Amino acid sequence: MLEMDALDPAAVAMKLPLTATRLRDRMLETGTTQEDLADAVGATQGAISQILTGMTRRSRLLPAIATFLAVNLDWLVGTSDQMIEMFDADGEDISEDDLALIRAGRSDKRLLKPEQLEAKPTALVTSHVPISESQDEDDELVDVMEIDLAFGMGGGGYLELPVKKKPRRFTRGWLRLFTQAPPSQIFIAQGIGDSMAPTIQNADIVIIDTSDTRLTMGDQIWAAAYGQTGVIKRLLPMPNGGVKIKSDNPLVESEMAYDGELHVIGKVVAVVRKMSGL
């Protein structure tokens, strides 16, 4: 029988965030315990409990949780009301990238339950939206959380959790120049050091898309937790299962991470730099 230590009377009486409610529902539906989920995503049961009780609303674990529970991330985090079970016609797990290609009709894969795509999410139905409405949406101001720590681009800044954050306001259209991820899955952070120079300079602001954590394309720039530090590096998956951690500065030697030493937080999709002399 599935047990959740979070289901005490106080927690039930409290109005939980949508993500917490949906996570509980999916765990009950699949018979997944907190211990199962924690082991699967490489977290502590305490971290899972914080999501289930609403203490943590924007966890970096959510993409991995959605993958393990075989459900689309947009539904889990509340940016879509359309729940899709992430299996293909052969019963194999599919990724968010696979789902996007299936939606676009550019994949040989088919959903195990294709009827789940019959009612398309509002966010994807744009062809009949008047231009004026689309422009208004692009002009909408949305909050993006700034991570209150310096991701190390040199020796690395100490990674303390829970990470303190504060909101910054951007237009939705400007963010879409870099990523289609919902604002709740986009973070900004300031790097320190010169190991990624000249690509990223000291004190540059980076925009991180946390909906993308799978190292499927080599030599991209990622934000990650490595040991007790936050790093921004090029990450290259290796045939032996390790990940090469590379710097753009040729004076900085590459490192190798193995067996869960590296946790990918998200892909760096943009660098914002103040021009000197301005």
Score class of each variant (00 low, 15 high):
Ser49Trp: 04
Lys109Gly: 02
Ile205Ser: 01
Met55Trp: 09
Thr199Arg: 12
Ala150Tyr: 09
Gly266Ile: 08
Val125Phe: 09
Ala224Trp: 12
Gly54Gln: 06
Leu175Gly: 11
Thr67Lys: 14
Ser247Phe: 13
Ile265Trp: 15
Arg57Cys: 00
Pro198His: 06
Leu215His: 07
Asp88Glu: 09
Thr67Asp: 14
Asp8Cys: 14
Thr213Leu: 07
Leu73Thr: 06
Met4Thr: 05
Thr33Val: 07
Gln34Asp: 07
Asn202His: 15
Leu251Trp: 07
Val41Thr: 15
Asp138Pro: 01
Met4Ile: 09
Arg234Met: 08
Pro237Phe: 07
Leu236Asp: 04
Ile84Trp: 03
Ser254Ala: 15
Asp97Thr: 12
Ala47Phe: 04
Ser49Lys: 10
Phe151Ile: 07
Ile208Leu: 03
Ser211Gln: 07
Thr56Val: 10
Pro250Ile: 06
Glu261Ser: 01
Lys267Gly: 06
Gln180Pro: 06
Gly105Tyr: 06
Ala203Phe: 12
Val272Arg: 02
Glu96Cys: 08
Thr32Asp: 02
Thr67Leu: 08
Thr229Leu: 10
Ala119Asp: 14
Gln201Ala: 12
Lys15Val: 12
Glu140Asn: 09
Tyr226Phe: 15
Pro250Gln: 07
Asn72Met: 05
Leu69Thr: 02
Arg103Ser: 00
Asp143Gln: 14
Leu2Phe: 06
Thr199Ser: 10
Phe68Lys: 11
Tyr226Lys: 05
Phe151Asn: 02
Leu141His: 07
Ala11Tyr: 15
Phe151His: 03
Pro239Gln: 01
Asp108Pro: 05
Ser59Lys: 09
Ser132Glu: 11
Asp8Thr: 14
Val77Ala: 08
Leu175Gln: 09
Lys244Asn: 10
Arg273Gly: 02
Thr67Trp: 05
Ala270Trp: 02
Asp93Arg: 15
Pro237Arg: 03
Val71Trp: 03
Gln45Lys: 14
Trp75His: 06
Trp75Asn: 02
Ala224Pro: 07
Thr210Arg: 13
Asp25Glu: 11
Ser184Ile: 13
Ala70Phe: 00
Lys166Asn: 15
Phe170Leu: 08
Thr179Val: 10
Val142His: 05
Leu235Gly: 00
Asp36Ser: 04
Glu92Ser: 14
Ile84Phe: 04
Gly277Arg: 10
Trp174Asn: 08
Ala11Phe: 15
Ile192Arg: 14
Arg24His: 13
Lys165Phe: 09
Glu85Phe: 00
Gly152Trp: 11
Arg58Thr: 08
Phe87Gln: 09
Gln135Pro: 02
Gly42Leu: 08
Val71Met: 06
Glu255Met: 13
Lys120Phe: 12
Leu62Val: 11
Trp75Cys: 03
Ser107Pro: 01
Thr53Asn: 13
Val41Leu: 12
Ala123Gln: 13
Glu29Gln: 10
Ile200Ser: 01
Arg60Pro: 03
Gly242Ser: 09
Ala40Ser: 09
Ala203Met: 11
Pro162Gln: 01
Asp219Gln: 10
Ile208Val: 15
Ser247Trp: 12
Tyr258Lys: 04
Leu235Ser: 00
Thr56Tyr: 04
Glu140His: 12
Ala10Pro: 03
Leu61Trp: 14
Asp74Tyr: 04
